[in-house]
Design a protein around this nucleic acid. Structure first.
Lengths: 139, 139
DNA sequence: GGAGATCGTTGGTCTACCCAACGATACACG
DNA sequence: CGTGTATCGTTGGGTAGACCAACGATCTCC
């Protein structure tokens, strides 16, 4: 890739390269399951908080409402989630994870675990802990 | 943002959040100078290796040839670089950094320095060294 | 009963990457 | 010398992830 002296050792550069590798691993892993990151995050939110409106899902995942719509279209089309009008508030839909969605989510969890291991393969357990601690301080 | 249990503490997630912050700082800093990352990397390559063909610049910076074209159009339009046909190989252009380009590059360097400090503000010098070492092992 | 907020949705924008294909040109080899 | 192959710059396209503005419908609150 780039071995520009001006850039090569900089934290911002290392961060971007390491993240690029992580994202590539994630994208590959998820692609093998036919999904992308947004699908996973949405299912994860449904699993953690239960049925919710699309706006709530957006707030909980940090995904824009407009992107929720498209991602949900996929999930519904594939039977992983269900979209029903909310009888208590006709502006809203109630989104529910289906059985198939829950099963799929378990597979996606395994993908996520595998990616962490692949990413951190070169690090000792101590180093992994340290890395996590330091990264958290950057946010 | 996202506080999904499934995701929040994962290295891949922390990496992506930390990188997002770094990229936002970079984008802001560069935007104040009217450029983006590609412009900087191209000028940095010209400074480090001297005049080069567009294909060489691509190989040295890791930027795709097609993106080099567009970035270079900007740099040339703003007088920071020069594009001339290579008399020795009519397929190629010879790209040269102008005086103005060199001056601008110094300002961009300052931006890059400032961003590192802003990004790592919470870390001790030791922690910074450790972070750099660990990130390098991920790539 | 109205004003203002919130809902889902549509239709855009943006950055950083990456890829395929084109005509023009150079090069290597039979 | 000729011809196939590789490389050049360029155009045009696609990707994920993120963000924004505006719409009509609906709800809530005073």
């Amino acid at each position: 890739m780039s071995t520009l002296r001006r850039v090569a050792g900089r934290p911002t550069w290392l961060l971007s390269r390491a993240n690029a590798r992580a994202q590539a691993l994630l994208a590959d892993g998820f692609a093998a399951e036919g999904v992308r990151g947004y699908h996973f995050r949405l299912l994860a939110a449904l699993d953690e908080f239960g049925p919710a409106s699309q706006a709530d899902l957006g707030r909980r995942t940090g995904i824009d409402r407009s992107d929720i719509v498209a991602t949900l279209n996929d999930l519904v089309a594939r039977g992983l989630a269900q979209r029903e009008p909310d009888p208590l508030d006709r502006r809203r839909n109630v989104i529910t994870m289906t059985k198939r969605g829950a099963v799929a989510l378990q597979r996606f969890d395994a993908v996520l675990d595998d990616v962490q291991d692949a990413l951190l393969g070169q690090l000792t357990p101590n180093e992994r802990t340290t890395l996590v601690r330091l990264l958290a301080k950057l946010i």
